[in-house]
Amino acid sequence: MTKKKPVRLRPYYKTRYAYEKLRVCKHCRSFTVLWEDKCANCGKQALIPVMDQARINAKRSMQNERLIALLVMLAAVLFSQTFVQIVLCFLGGMALTLFLWWFQRKMLETETRRQLDKLLRGSERRIVEGIYLNLGTASAAIKEDEQLGYEILREIASIVHNDRIRLQRIMLLQGFVLRKDMELELEPLMLEDFEPALAEYIGELAKVKRELIKSQAIRYVMIYEREILRMKDGAGIMAGVAGAAVRMKKYVDMYPEFILRYVRQLPKERYLRLYQLVRRNPDQSWNGLRDEVSAIYNEKYRWDPEFQNWE
């Protein structure tokens, strides 16, 4: 395996909705998920978020309606015979148009959403083309700068969910030195099938950022336990995940047999955590896990001062 590189990943701005990542070029109407300043298609600095484009569209259609209203009012004024009629038609028309305008402003939010829906559905082909262009940028970047390549793929993955991108990201992550303060994630990278790189990544996360190990990852290593144990340091990965699982009672309740299989390989600090859990829940047997924990305690840690004040 090649030497791992220390990297400092740029922050990833997680948006509430995936479409907030998508931008459209005002000039050539092509789409992008990346953060570039210039449109990759036409080179103009005309990229705006799709929501902004939708708002522009909504405002334009509302403006057209007001224009029609004003034209009809003008016609009424033109057909007026006396000055009083002109004033009446003008004031009446103005009042109605202003009322329409006031109402349109209240409806702008819903109209914008409707316009965005229209924009997305009407630009299906261009959105897909934009993603292809982004993926091209990603593969070009990976060859030169793996970190940049990873960051680009991370952006694309906010909209495109497929195993190919997940695997590519895991592979790139394997080339980096992972640290606790890094913005890492696991659940969005989970695959269905067995993949040694993913197992390795889970093993590493169990060391540096164990709060990311949740049921999905625990289930994954349990399903592919045999395959993982055949890997180099596979047992270490399994023990690492078991060690991460004991941080919450929930996981001990769910997977006591799994933890039982690796309880003897837990480092002292993880074992202490499990021991505390066992002591705090005297009525749980956890399918024999409790007895095993007691046995290990008696064998190894009976005289350890850290185990005396466990509260």
Binding site: A18, Q104, T110, E124, V128
Partner: peptide
């Protein structure tokens, strides 16, 4: 105004929009 009211009733939510986009982005890939 009637049209606006009607559209408001059937306007897509943010979640709908997300779903639409994800369906488009993941269909052809």
């Amino acid at each position: 105004i009637a049209v606006y009211f009607n559209r408001q009733k059937h306007a897509p939510t943010h979640e709908d929009l997300d779903e639409t986009l994800l369906a488009i982005a993941n269909r052809r890939r």
